[in-house]
Each structure stands twice: as structure tokens, then as C-alpha cells.
Amino acid sequence: MNLQTTQLPPHAEMVRAMLERDTAYEGVFFTAVRTTGIFCRPGCTARSPKPENVEFFANADDCLSAGYRACLRCKPLDAAAIAPDWVQRLLTSVDADPELRWTDAQLQAQGIEPLKLRRWFKQHFGMTFHAWLRTRRLGMALGGIKQGDSIDSAAFDSGYESLSGFRDAFQKSFHTTPGRAAHSEPLLFTRLTTPLGPMIAMAERRGLVLLEFLDRPALTREIEALQLHHGYAVAPGHNAHLQQIEEQLAAYFAGKLTEFSVPLHMPGTEFFRQVWAELAKIPYGQTTTYGAIAAILGKPGASRAVGLANGHNRLSIVVPCHRVIGADGSLTGYGGGQPRKACLLRLENAKTQMTRQLAF
């Protein structure tokens, strides 16, 4: 019998998540198939086994202790689900020659199946490889324009043969014209890997603006709002804030960090910012309620409004909206999915309890 059952979601829910390959359960549980002796992540793309042949474990160590081998497809021992070697080699080639326009024939010559690459990028970046390449080139053009390059030179340096084509692509990607972009704030984004699945981080010069799980349903709307209402030009890239959150997030999941210090920039209404500020004050390993936050803000009847602001928090984990629970102790909603919320709270509770034990 699995001794970790009390830490797992309901059995029927795990079966559903396994059959539907629900990535919201990444890191929450693992599936182990008795007939093959192999264990997988819940989002594994291999053919789903019969539920009666499966048992569930809370962590990979338990699977190994029970005699199961790691799946070669989903690689459950790679908790962060890092990019496979063939993707890493391709990204290295893109960095070496960023202006190269990769064709399917060139990809195949490198031993890369275009359809497989398309699927991987859609899953981990939310766009195809070719769309990512276009956005990347346009991001470089944006950087050039911000540094004073002419629109003509930015267009041709990006590989566009006509100014009209460049302008159309630029406006479609950044929701602004190249001329106006010279005065806009670049918002750089990168993909981060975590034990609970891939995340996207976005930062500008003042700090981290967004940190969300890639499969969050509201993610597209959040990014569009940042572009349309706050004037950001979004492009792939990296800066010191993104580097810092990558390091701190890894330390958090390793149980070595309880408070984030990465600078934040959180555009929003005054009330939303007040709620987010209170969220940031919730201590590691503790929880509160919407009503308690409303009372602190001097608006005891505003629990629903606090819940709305909580749902609009763009900085998952760093601004810990997962520490807000229902008045009856229920987990309530969470943009990254309730399974992830439960897992984050378990992580923090385990660390807190260990610290207390060591203190005695």
C-alpha cells in the first residue's frame, strides 16, 4: 500500500488527470504502471494505461523504492522537465546565428522533425518554433529602435525585405507601431522550469512583472492587458531580474528560500495594489482569508473584491496568493490549479515544521 496516500489528491481525480494528461498536476503525483514497471509524470504523452493497472505516488523517490523505472519519454526524474538535448542544440544554433530563417528542410538536415518541434514549442512556449523565431527577431529590432536605430535599418537587419511587411509584423506582435515603440517599455520574457511544470517570467527594467504557469487559462489575457493597457512591447529576452527569479525560484522549490527579494513592478488599480501588498505580507508557511485581508484594508464587506484582486495577481508564488484560503478552510480557487496550490502549501508547511523541530 502507498503510505503517501494522505498527501495525494482523490483517486478518481488522479485517474482523470492521468487520462486527460492534465499538466496542472505536474509534481503533485506520479503514475506507476504495474504491467510495465515504469512510472511517469501525469502529463506524459505516452499511451494512457488502464486505470486498474496504475498506482499513484506523491514523489519519484517512492516510485523508485517500489521498484519502478523512470519513463524515457517524460523523464520524471528531471523534475524541472528541462529541454531535451535536440532542442538545446537548436537553441544554441539560433543564438549563434539569430538572423537565420530556419526552414523545415534545414531542421530535417539537423535531424529534427518539424512537427515534433512545433508540438514541443507550443507546449512549452505557447507558440510554434517559427512564431518564436519571428518574435525573437522583432524583439532584437525593438532593442535596436530603443537604442536609436532607424526603422529602415531595424527592418532590414531583421530580415524583412519590405518596410510594410516589417511594420505589419511589428504591430501584430507588439500591438504598437515601430515609431511608438521607441518610447514604450520593453517587457522581456523567458521560460522557466519548475517541479510543478513550466512557467513564464516577464520583467522590465524596474522589476519582475509577471510569473505564471504556462497552462494558466488567463495567461493570454494577462499578456494582452499588459500590452494594450500598460504600453509594454513584449519580446523574448533576458535581464538581471529574470536571472534572479530563476535562481530564487529554484531555491524556493528546494526548500532553501522562504522570502523572495527580486524587485517587483506591479501595474494595476490602487485597490488591486493594496491587496497585492497585503498578499506579500503573508508569512511563509501560514495562510489567511479574503475576509481577513478585507478587514485589514478597512473594508470588511469587500471579501469578493479582495478575491477578484487576488485572481488578478500576475506574480504567482512570489506574491503568495496561494496562501489565501476560504473562511471554511477550503483551498478555493487558484489560477495555476488547486493541485498546485495544495502542493505549494505542503512544501511550505513541511519546511516550517522542520524548522520548528530543529529549534527544539
Score class of each variant (00 low, 15 high):
residue 3 L to Q: 15
residue 4 Q to K: 05
residue 11 H to Q: 12
residue 14 M to G: 05
residue 14 M to I: 07
residue 15 V to T: 15
residue 19 L to Q: 15
residue 21 R to V: 08
residue 24 A to G: 11
residue 25 Y to R: 03
residue 26 E to K: 08
residue 27 G to Y: 02
residue 28 V to W: 03
residue 30 F to G: 02
residue 32 A to M: 03
residue 32 A to V: 02
residue 35 T to F: 07
residue 35 T to M: 03
residue 44 C to M: 11
residue 44 C to G: 06
residue 51 P to D: 07
residue 53 N to C: 08
residue 53 N to P: 02
residue 54 V to T: 06
residue 63 C to R: 00
residue 64 L to D: 03
residue 66 A to M: 14
residue 74 C to G: 05
residue 75 K to I: 11
residue 78 D to T: 11
residue 78 D to G: 10
residue 83 A to R: 04
residue 85 D to F: 08
residue 87 V to S: 06
residue 90 L to G: 10
residue 91 L to W: 11
residue 94 V to D: 13
residue 98 P to S: 13
residue 98 P to G: 11
residue 104 D to G: 12
residue 110 Q to D: 09
residue 114 P to R: 04
residue 114 P to G: 10
residue 118 R to Q: 10
residue 119 R to G: 01
residue 126 G to H: 13
residue 126 G to I: 09
residue 126 G to W: 07
residue 127 M to P: 04
residue 127 M to Y: 05
residue 129 F to G: 03
residue 133 L to E: 04
residue 136 R to M: 11
residue 136 R to V: 01
residue 141 A to Q: 01
residue 143 G to V: 01
residue 145 I to G: 01
residue 149 D to A: 07
residue 151 I to H: 02
residue 152 D to E: 15
residue 154 A to G: 10
residue 157 D to K: 10
residue 158 S to W: 02
residue 159 G to Q: 10
residue 160 Y to E: 14
residue 164 S to R: 12
residue 165 G to P: 09
residue 168 D to K: 11
residue 173 S to P: 01
residue 180 R to I: 00
residue 181 A to I: 00
residue 188 L to G: 00
residue 189 F to R: 00
residue 192 L to E: 06
residue 195 P to L: 09
residue 195 P to E: 08
residue 199 M to G: 01
residue 200 I to M: 13
residue 201 A to I: 01
residue 203 A to Q: 07
residue 214 L to F: 14
residue 216 R to P: 05
residue 217 P to G: 12
residue 228 L to N: 07
residue 228 L to T: 06
residue 236 P to D: 08
residue 239 N to W: 11
residue 247 E to V: 04
residue 248 Q to E: 15
residue 251 A to Q: 14
residue 252 Y to W: 06
residue 257 L to R: 04
residue 261 S to Y: 07
residue 262 V to S: 03
residue 268 G to K: 08
residue 268 G to L: 10
residue 269 T to Q: 15
residue 274 Q to E: 11
residue 278 E to S: 03
residue 278 E to W: 04
residue 282 I to D: 05
residue 282 I to N: 06
residue 285 G to T: 06
residue 287 T to A: 13
residue 290 Y to G: 03
residue 294 A to I: 02
residue 297 L to M: 05
residue 300 P to A: 14
residue 302 A to W: 08
residue 303 S to A: 14
residue 309 A to W: 01
residue 309 A to R: 02
residue 313 N to Y: 09
residue 315 L to E: 00
residue 316 S to I: 01
residue 321 C to A: 15
residue 321 C to L: 04
residue 324 V to Q: 03
residue 324 V to G: 02
residue 326 G to I: 05
residue 326 G to M: 06
residue 328 D to G: 12
residue 332 T to G: 10
residue 333 G to R: 09
residue 335 G to S: 15
residue 336 G to V: 02
residue 341 K to A: 04
residue 342 A to Y: 01
residue 342 A to F: 08
residue 346 R to M: 15
residue 350 A to D: 15
residue 359 A to N: 14
residue 360 F to K: 12
residue 360 F to V: 10
residue 360 F to R: 15
